[in-house]
Amino acid sequence: MSENVLEVRGLTKRYNGTAVVKGISFSITKGEIFGLLGPNGAGKTTTILMLLGLGEITDGQARVLGHDPAREPLQVKRRVGYLPDQVGFYDNLSAFENLRFTARLIGIDRRERDDRIMSSLTHVGLKDVAYRPVGTFSRGMRQRLGLAEILMKNAEIAILDEPTSGLDPQGTLELLDMIRDLKRHSVTVLLSSHLLDRVQSICDRVALFNNGSIALIGTVDELRRQVFGGGFRVEVEAEGQGLAERLKTVPGVSKVDPSGPRSWTLGADRDVRPEAAAAVVAGGGRLLRLSVEEPTLEAIYTGYFRTQGGEAHAA
């Protein structure tokens, strides 16, 4: 299961002596959704282009599906699908014709070409507009067409650069669903985004970029623990006597702070809502409200750089 499909070691990119990507290392296992997150200009796109063999690697090593993108770019590009930031299509051609051009470039067999194009268009919900010129498409439809291209290609790895930027909330949700769907088709997904909160829900693991380096890497929960220690904050609102003391005895709770006349904030290393509820009820209290607040990736990111004394220019 833990087969690495993508490995990067000490990857570095310098422009005229200025390092844009500074010796980053990470690996992605088959079938996971990996998020490359960080503000604009942190080096995410540069990294992606190096992985595709579209940008020269100054130093370090990259292995994509066992191939070196600098030396065997065709092998890599044959098996990896790429959705660039603000993807463009030929506006005068229809969605179908655009995909047919790509299919010819890939060298898909003529007999199965049209079927594969139509089924991928159907998959992203563009079947009804397949023969309309792409010039009439909205941003969301273009992004979906980009995903259709990756599906048609039968890519083993999908690299998506800022897939949700510029989309409305509805479009974002639809697109995130489709990305999850890629995972169900056992496609490994590497996506980059500066909108940390939007994509944290779908990423198995994330790497937080800052200024050309990876600051943190791991699952969102791991990062949360790493940065905030406890991590979870449970809000309890209840009526009763001596509830604060009772809540302190709940296993996993590290501190209890009053946040109102009859409410408390619990600091905990996991979600302690069931235990807290049981404690309130066991103490004869009336439980009015119980909620858990997980620090978002945005908060983790900002929090990390506050503790490091560095600047986090989150977008």
Partner: peptide, 14 residues
Amino acid sequence: NRRTLSRVLSQPIY
């Protein structure tokens, strides 16, 4: 300008 370059070049061609 149409932002098609990187998409086309990410296909298996030079």
